[in-house]
Design a protein around this nucleic acid. Sequence first.
DNA 1: GATTTCACGTA
DNA 2: CGTACGTGAAATCC
Length: 590
Amino acid sequence: MDLVTALGQAGLGRGDLAGLAVTPDGTAAVAIAGAGWSTAASEVARVDETLRPRWVTWSQETAQRLALAGVRPATCWDVAAVHRLLFGGWRADPGWAWAHLRGLPLDGVPVAGPQSAGEADLFDAAQEHAAAQSGPSGATPDAEHPVEPDGYLRQDWTRGGWEDTPDRVLAWARLALEAAQSQGATLAGSSDGGLAVATARSESTIELLCAELSADGLPMDRAVAEQVLTGIIGPRPRGDAEAAQMRAVRDAVVLRLAPAGVTADLRSPVQVRSLLAAAGVDVPDTRAWRLEEFRESHPLVAALLEWRKAERIATTYGYAWLDEHLGSDGRLRGAWTGSDGAAGRMTASNGLHNMPAAMRQAVVAAPGHVLIRADLGQIEPRVLAAVSGDPALAAATAADDLYLPVATQLGVDRPTAKVAMIAAMYGQTTGHGGQAGRRMRAAYPVAMAYLDSADRSARAGRDLRTYGGRLVRMSGGDRAPAQADAARTAARGRYGRNALIQGAAAELFKMWAVTVRARALPLGGRIVLCLHDELLVHVPREHADATARLVGDCLAETAARWSPGGQDARGARVRFIADICAVRSWADAK
DNA sequence: GATTTCACGTA
DNA sequence: CGTACGTGAAATCC
C-alpha cells in the first residue's frame, strides 16, 4: 500500500499533525499516533498535495533538506520556532526545547547544539565519530530510545546521531510529533489561546518560507549590479595591485583637503578623529550623524562623508560580494531565520536585508516575470492601536494617512503629531514630554497605558509577552543588571516598549507572508524577499494584476483574523494598508 | 586567534 | 527619533 493510501486510511486529514524527519540524503520518515513509515521525500510531496497535513519538524533544517529535493510542503509545525515563541531567546535545539516542555532543570540539558560557525567542524566530526562507533552491528544499548531515563533527550540523538537507521529516523519524527502536541496544549491553554496557536502556525510555516528563500535567492541582474558599482567605486580592478591603487586614489581625494603635512589612515576612526581635530573639527567620535553639521563649513568633512559611502560599497557590497553571493543563475542567496532573538523579526544574511538603496535597480524580475512589491503603511501605530485596543487610535486607522486625524485630534501639525507618536512608542530621551506628548496621553489613554505598562515591566526586569504570545525575556542575563544606573534602566524600558510593537508587527507580517505564499503558488508566484514590512513576489507577467490583488486581499483577511475588533468590546476595527505595485525592478517601486 | 568597538546599511 | 539586525575593519584582549 502506498503512503497516501495508508495515511488516508489511518484518518490523517487536512491540518492534522504528522511527524516528519528527513536525513541529509533525502530519506524521510512520517509518524502519526500509533504508526510510522519510512519513505522518500517525493512521497512527502504526494501526501502534502492530497491530504495536506501539518508536518511537524524539529527545525528549519528539515525544510532545507526537502527544498533540496524539490519538495515544498504547504504548512508545518516547527518545534524550534514554537519554542522561541513560548520561551523567548534564540536557542531552540531539540534537547533544549524538550527540557522546557518536560519542565526539567535547564542546567541538566546534556550539551548544547553548535552555537557558531566555528563549532560546525567539531560538530560534524562528532557526528562522524558517533556514526562510525555504532557501525552495522554496533548499536549501543538503548540506542533506539531517544529519551534518557531521567527525561532528557540523549546526547547522541540531539547531535544528529538519529540519522543512521530507518528506525531511528522514524523515532525522531515520532518524538517531534510528541513535542508539538505538548507545545500545542500549552499554547491552547494560554490567555489568548486562539491567537497564540495561530501565531505558532504562521511562525512555523515561515520556516518553510525561509528555507525556500535561501534555496531560491533574490533575482538580480549581474550586469546592472556591476554598472551600479562602476558608477560608485569604478570598474572592477584587474588584480590586488590595481585594487590598492584605486583605493589610494579614493583616499587622496580626501587627504588633499587636509591641512598641510597632516595625513591619516581613513579606515582608522582614531586617526580620522585626529585628522579632523587638525582641521579644526573637534568631535568625540566620527560617526556620520555627528559630522553632518560640519559638512557645509568644512570641505574635508564633506569629502570624508562621500568617501565613507564609497568605502562601504567597496568593502561590503562590492565586486567580491557579487562574486561570492550572486549565483551564475542570477540569484543572490543568503541564509534566512524566521525570528531573531529579541522581538522575533526575520533576519537574512549576505546583505539581503541591508543592501544599499542604489543596488535595488539591479534587483530585476526574470524574463517574462514581474515583481509585486507590497509594503505595509504606517505599520507601527496601526499595530499599537490593535494590540492596545485603543478605540480612538483605532478610529484614526481608518485614514490612509493616520497622522492626519492624529494631528487634528492633538491640535498640532502633521510632523509634530508624527514625532509625538513615535516618541511615545519608542520612548524619547530628549525634551521630555512637551505639549504634544501631554495631549497624546489625553487623546489615546489606552494606547499610552499599554506602552507605559511595557516600559515599567521591562525596567523592573519582568518578562513581557507580545500580542501574539512571544515571550520577551527581561529577567536574567545582562539585560537586567542588579545595579542598573538610570540610563540603563531607561534603555531597558525603551527596549521593552519597542519589542512589543516591533514584535507584534513582525507577527502580523509573517501571518500575511505565509498567506501570500500559499495563495500565490497556483499563479506561479514566489516570495523572493521579506524586509520587515515589505514583500517582493516574483510572478509570471500574465498574473501580475491578479497577484497584486491577491496580496491586498491576503492582508485584509490576515488583519481581520489577527485583530478582529468591531463586533466585541475591543472597539473600532483597526485598518491595515499596503502600497502594492507591479514593477520590473525593485527600484521602480514608488 | 578570538572578541570587542566603531561605523553604517536596511526596516 | 527610538529599537533591531548583519557586515567589515580596526582595536583590543588573551
